[in-house]
Simulated scan of single mutants.
Amino acid sequence: MSTVIEQAVEARLVASAPRMETVPATLRYDREDPYAVSMAFPPPATLEGVEVSWAFARELLAEGVEGPAGVGDVRVRPYGYDRTVVEFHASEGVAVLHIRTSELRHFLERARHLVPPGREHQYLDWDRDLMELLEG
């Protein structure tokens, strides 16, 4: 069984202009980092022209499809019938994305099958993490 889940999603970048630009993104969940998910954007979709990835709590994403969640760099909230807003806050500004809620729910369900919520601690490798900490 694979320990990593990746899923391409279509995100709509909300800008000050009336139209919304579609940007590709990839959601990723790795059983070796069971509390986190990441969302990566390819170079053409970023201001710097390099791949950018944001990591945040899986729980934040799960809560955000149901109701407003997050107060820091990443915020998630439902929007309309089948959209979820994901906001990324950085010193350069804020990126606001609309993503189909059904795509996020599908991704979260796949992650739940890999690591059930509340059991993340069973998938941590404490010895490896301690070794990495002491070596660094």
Rank of each mutant, 00 (worst) to 15 (best):
98 H>T: 10
124 L>D: 00
80 G>Y: 12
121 H>G: 03
126 W>V: 08
75 R>L: 13
68 P>Y: 12
76 V>F: 10
79 Y>Q: 14
117 P>Q: 07
69 A>D: 12
112 R>W: 04
81 Y>W: 14
104 L>P: 00
109 E>S: 12
108 L>Y: 01
120 E>C: 04
81 Y>G: 12
119 R>K: 07
100 R>F: 11
113 H>K: 09
82 D>E: 09
111 A>D: 02
91 S>V: 09
111 A>S: 06
82 D>T: 13
71 V>Q: 15
118 G>L: 06
79 Y>A: 12
93 G>D: 12
70 G>T: 11
129 D>A: 05
126 W>D: 09
62 A>L: 04
125 D>H: 01
61 L>D: 05
126 W>P: 02
127 D>A: 03
110 R>L: 08
121 H>T: 01
121 H>F: 06
60 L>H: 11
75 R>H: 14
124 L>Y: 01
106 H>S: 11
118 G>P: 03
109 E>N: 12
62 A>M: 06
101 T>N: 08
69 A>F: 14
83 R>T: 14
101 T>M: 03
110 R>T: 03
73 D>C: 07
78 P>T: 11
130 L>M: 09
129 D>L: 02
127 D>E: 10
100 R>A: 12
94 V>T: 15
120 E>R: 00
125 D>Y: 02
112 R>E: 07
81 Y>A: 15
118 G>I: 02
83 R>M: 15
110 R>P: 02
77 R>S: 13
110 R>H: 07
86 V>K: 05
61 L>F: 11
103 E>I: 02
124 L>A: 03
93 G>Y: 13
116 P>E: 06
125 D>F: 01
85 V>W: 06
87 E>I: 05
107 F>M: 02
72 G>N: 13
103 E>R: 10
121 H>D: 04
114 L>P: 00
79 Y>E: 15
101 T>Y: 04
106 H>T: 08
86 V>F: 03
60 L>F: 09
122 Q>T: 07
98 H>S: 12
89 H>Y: 12
104 L>A: 02
100 R>L: 10
130 L>N: 05
87 E>C: 08
123 Y>S: 03
62 A>N: 04
60 L>N: 07
83 R>K: 15
73 D>H: 15
90 A>Q: 15
64 G>D: 05
73 D>K: 10
86 V>S: 04
122 Q>A: 11
99 I>L: 09
79 Y>G: 06
98 H>Q: 15
68 P>E: 15
123 Y>V: 04
89 H>N: 15
88 F>D: 09
125 D>S: 02
65 V>N: 03
129 D>Y: 02
68 P>C: 12
126 W>S: 07
117 P>R: 03
73 D>Q: 14
85 V>E: 08
100 R>N: 06
64 G>F: 06
88 F>W: 14
85 V>C: 11
95 A>P: 03
69 A>V: 08
80 G>H: 08
105 R>N: 10
69 A>P: 06
64 G>K: 01
66 E>G: 08
79 Y>R: 13
122 Q>W: 02
84 T>H: 09
102 S>P: 04
